[in-house]
């Protein structure tokens, strides 16, 4: 589907899925390293992230390859390397797909391997996963931002926004998978403590990322509004009255950021502020991440379409 613009839904979906997958793996690897690599509440988070992370990346990449019309032409990307963000990005992506799949496989039960050796390899892979996941999460924004002919995209903050959104949607995917598959006996005190402990870590991180994302969006809008010329006219498309204003303000800001942020803050605040107890029902852990993921997709949609529908002013 082309929507009359050079880049259509496949590309938008790819930007969302690859970002989310890279964010999931980055979050998983960071959690594993934070917990020292052994068992514990961080390990269970890392395990969910590692097992689910490669799927969106691979699905998104397949979509992107078929968007080219003749899929095998994608191999031409790997015959050269140059300083084009797309060339660098495709090498990062290929490396990341391989690394993330190996990382995921290490979390499957391998009875013939001793536990210590396995966790040592997981830790080693995690050290590679963090930078390569971040590079995949950030290159898509660099790719869009590289062109002065697209004033809406031509800003360094788009890359930052995409990276924060990638990690935020990645965290949401971990919370979502964990809520769906985690078998927990809440009547056993140790299990209950571990479940809510890891839930708190995830929710608190997500709130922080949502806050940062709102801040970056504010900076993007504020600076575009304060300038004159192409960027000012381009950003009008998402300001009230613009063509994409509803998608942006209702979909991205309200549904994807403000509402999930407020709900998570409501559950996180007691422990964060005065050391209370963190408890969140499973339904919240399913609905809130879904909203964050829908918001993340709509963010890619709004940014990609706004950039394509606007151009430099004058001739």
């Amino acid at each position: 589907m082309h929507l009359g613009t050079p880049w259509g839904l496949e590309v938008i979906l790819y930007l969302f899925l690859a970002g989310m997958g890279a964010g999931t793996i980055t979050a998983s690897a960071s959690m594993l390293l934070r917990g020292g690599g052994g068992d514990g509440q961080y390990f269970s988070i890392a395990r969910y992230g590692a097992l689910v992370g490669p799927f969106p990346v691979v699905i998104g990449t397949v979509l992107l390859i078929f968007e080219l019309g003749r899929p095998f032409r994608a191999l031409n990307l790997y015959k050269v390397i140059n300083l084009s963000p797309m060339s660098l990005g495709s090498w990062f992506l290929a490396f990341f797909i391989i690394i993330s799949i190996i990382y995921a496989l290490l979390f499957l039960p391998w009875p013939q391997w001793k536990g210590k050796r396995l966790s040592a390899w997981r830790r080693r892979l995690a050290w590679v996963c963090v930078p390569s996941g971040l590079s995949v999460a950030i290159y898509t924004g660099v790719l869009l931002g590289a062109m002065p002919s697209r004033p809406f995209w031509n800003s360094p903050i788009i890359a930052m926004l995409f990276m924060i959104s990638a990690i935020s949607t990645g965290m949401a995917l971990i919370i979502f998978t964990r809520a769906l598959f985690y078998k927990v006996h809440l009547d056993v005190p140790t299990e209950e403590r571990s479940w809510h402990g890891s839930g708190y870590v995830l929710a608190a991180t997500d709130v922080l990322l949502i806050g940062f994302e709102l801040l970056v969006l504010f900076l993007l809008l504020m600076f575009a509004h304060l300038t004159v010329g192409s960027v000012k006219y381009a950003v009008e498309i998402i300001l009230p009255g613009g063509e994409l204003a509803v998608f942006f303000w209702v979909g991205v800001v309200l549904l994807g950021l403000v509402i999930p942020g407020i709900i998570e803050m409501f559950f996180v605040a007691p422990k964060l502020l005065y050391g209370g107890h963190y408890t969140a029902p499973r339904s919240i852990d399913i609905v809130v991440p879904l909203a964050v993921m829908v918001g993340g997709y709509l963010l890619r949609y709004v940014i990609v379409m706004a950039g394509q529908l606007t151009g430099p002013v004058g001739l």
């Binding site: 080219l68 031409n76 790719l143 590289a146 002919s149 430099p312």
Partner: peptide, 13 residues
């Protein structure tokens, strides 16, 4: 060699 990624179409002012 062109893979029809359409990146150049965006880059051209």
């Amino acid at each position: 060699v062109c893979i029809a990624c359409k990146y150049c179409m965006h880059a051209c002012p």
